[in-house]
């Protein structure tokens, strides 16, 4: 339910937000919450906090979907092939994956920001790259166990080419685990986007993002705590709802859990 709210907020931000997130209301700078016209108050430039929180969902979901999509597009084929063929290809892939694991995500993000310049797309790229090892491992482990199934044996005996076995037999059968992985990765990506934007390595102001809003709120924390409370709550709501969704899906889809 909550996850749906976040997705809808991201998709319908231009229609839902009562104000333009960049528009200043000079009569109501730093208005407290419950001010008429500004239910969550305004920030130091008189921008409506509610509108910016709604628009922030868009940055978060963009980063989440981009990073998760990138990670899956790269990892699933790699994991499939490594698990199915084994041998030196498997060995090389897994060592590379282990190496990737040795770099903390912030270091990769920092490196990319230094090379390509800080932006939402580059932050998503970094977040996605960091998730690759996890998904490769899951896809490979699934392939290893599915490879031994009798229907794969039957397909091999029937003379099906490797491509057919990989795409028609193995991939569909690991969909459940992969869907569970999506709900694991998505909240991590949302959290990472807000962290990177908070550090100035992600979304650049004045574009509204929950992390950017928190950075801007830092100097006003003591006097105007609402500036930090609402974007923070939005992050918690978004990640918590996707985590709950993931837990539910795992119970429903994964008989081992």
């Amino acid at each position: 339910m909550c996850a749906l709210v976040v997705v809808l907020a991201a998709l319908l931000a231009p229609r839902l937000a009562p104000y333009d997130p960049a528009a200043s209301d000079e009569d109501a700078v730093l208005a407290p919450p419950f001010t008429p016209g500004h239910p969550l108050g305004t920030d130091e430039l008189g921008r409506d906090v509610l509108s910016r929180v709604i628009w922030g969902a868009r940055a978060s979901m963009q980063a989440g979907v981009l990073a998760t999509g990138l990670a899956f597009v790269v990892s699933v084929p790699v994991g499939l092939v490594a698990g199915y063929y084994g041998g030196w290809w498997d060995l090389v892939t897994m060592r590379l994956v282990d190496t990737l694991l040795a770099f903390p995500y912030l270091i990769i993000a920092v490196g990319l920001a230094a090379i390509l310049g800080p932006s939402l797309a580059n932050a998503s790229l970094a977040i996605g790259i960091v998730q690759i090892p996890k998904i490769v491992r899951v896809a490979r482990a699934e392939t290893l166990s599915l490879r031994e199934e009798s229907y794969v044996e039957a397909a091999v005996a029937a003379g099906a080419p490797d491509r057919t076995i990989l795409l028609r037999h193995l991939l569909p059968n690991m969909t459940n685990s992969l869907i569970v992985q999506v709900t694991v990765i998505l909240p991590i990506a949302i959290l990472a986007e807000s962290s990177l934007s908070f550090l100035g390595l992600g979304v650049q102001p004045p574009t509204p993002s929950w992390g950017v809003m928190l950075t801007a709120a830092q100097p006003f924390m003591a006097q105007m705590p609402w500036l930090a409370v609402f974007p923070g709550l939005a992050i918690v709501l978004a990640t918590l709802s996707f985590n709950l969704l993931g837990d539910g899906l795992r119970d429903a889809l994964d008989p081992r859990a």
Partner: peptide, 9 residues
């Protein structure tokens, strides 16, 4: 689900 920097703030 809580961002650590928000807890910090």
């Amino acid at each position: 689900s809580v961002p650590p920097f928000w807890i910090g703030l």
